[in-house]
């Protein structure tokens, strides 16, 4: 084999191994060449702020998907907690209102988790049920109309639109959640067992590990993260709205899948999931900058998901 051929092979190997990163870099290059505005501070911080909600939820979704599950209820939890946050703020101090909202999100997640781990209901079905329940609760509490934040909500609005060191607060929050999940997966028993469950649930159970606890916990965590995303949304718009987050769960799942996670469990990483979120965000961002209408955007988004997943197919083939 000639040296050049070896180099080509090596390069190809690299491309396949780091496919998510490669797609990410390609997206960055394309975006910055076709638009002068892309690499401006305003645009980047806008982009990051837009994806912060999805980014936070996707970290929870990654944990769920690693166990071999799925959570369809996150979009509805965002709506419910947005409404709850808006109404709590009418009666309580900000801090307590926020904590209560997050608790509500965890509660919805724990209900899914309970159905899935104790009653062994398929995650798809259990979270589908919780999806409509949460959405319905959001409408009931808000009586179908958005809840406009009162004066005590202004602190929250400041958070939603504020910057720290030139970075929007929600983006900070996203990175904190990312680092948290990164550490969980890489260094903790919890992360190790979650990955193991997705790879071979029965072997984990027969090793004397309390399977139910872990399967329960991942849905609680995701519920909590979705609640945080709901609060962020409220803080940006200044209203608690029951109609937000429709179809959000699909964007989140798409981001995790673009990040190379396997829907049957056991495979996926926090870094790649974050890259997946950014790729998804960039697709929308660059097309908005180019004034491409919303409908073709959806088609292009779908095509890019297909390309990403096909590339991952190459990766598994290479290993065999």
């Amino acid at each position: 084999m000639s040296i050049t051929k070896k180099r080509v092979l090596k390069a190809l190997h690299f491309l396949i191994e780091y496919d998510t990163l490669v797609i990410f870099l390609i997206m960055v290059i394309i975006s910055s060449t076709i638009s002068d505005v892309f690499f401006t501070h305003t645009n980047i911080s806008n982009l990051l702020r837009q994806v912060s909600g999805i980014g936070i939820i996707s970290m929870g979704m990654l944990l769920v998907i690693l166990t071999g599950g799925i959570d369809l209820s996150v979009g509805s939890i965002v709506a419910l907690t947005s409404v709850l946050c808006g109404s709590f703020l009418l009666y309580m101090p900000v801090a307590i209102a926020l904590i209560c909202s997050v608790i509500a999100g965890v509660a919805i997640g724990s209900f899914s988790g309970y159905l899935i781990s104790v009653h062994r209901i398929a995650p798809f079905i259990a979270t589908l049920a919780l999806m409509t329940i949460s959405r319905g609760l959001g409408f009931i509490i808000s009586k179908g109309s958005p809840i406009i934040l009162n004066t005590s909500g202004s602190a929250l609005i400041n958070f939603g639109s504020g910057y720290l060191l030139g970075i929007p607060y929600p983006v900070f929050l996203m990175f904190i959640v990312f680092i948290l999940v990164f550490i969980i997966l890489k260094y903790t028993v919890f992360g190790r067992i979650i990955i193991a469950i997705g790879s071979n649930e029965e072997a984990v159970r027969l090793s004397g590990i309390k399977l139910k606890y872990y399967k329960f916990m991942v849905y609680c965590i995701t519920g909590g993260f979705a609640a945080i995303a709901g609060i962020i949304s409220t803080s940006r718009t200044g209203v608690g709205s029951p109609i937000i987050g429709v179809g959000l769960e699909l964007d989140v799942i798409a981001a995790v899948v673009i990040g190379g996670a396997n829907l049957s469990g056991g495979k996926g990483s926090a870094v790649n999931t974050l890259l997946g979120v950014l790729i998804l965000g960039m697709i929308g961002n660059i097309m908005n900058l180019q004034d491409i209408p919303a409908y073709p955007q959806q088609v292009i988004k779908g095509l890019i998901i297909i390309v990403a997943v096909l590339l991952q197919g190459l990766q598994t083939k290479k290993k065999l």
Binding site: Y187, T188, R192, S199, N200, A203, G208, I209, G266
Partner: peptide, 25 residues
Amino acid sequence: ILPMSIKCNISLTNLGRLSNKLGFI
């Protein structure tokens, strides 16, 4: 667990003793 390492498989039954109180391995 076929796709995991020897290490991850062997320590699976003993993660409690191989980690600190915060759950770090």
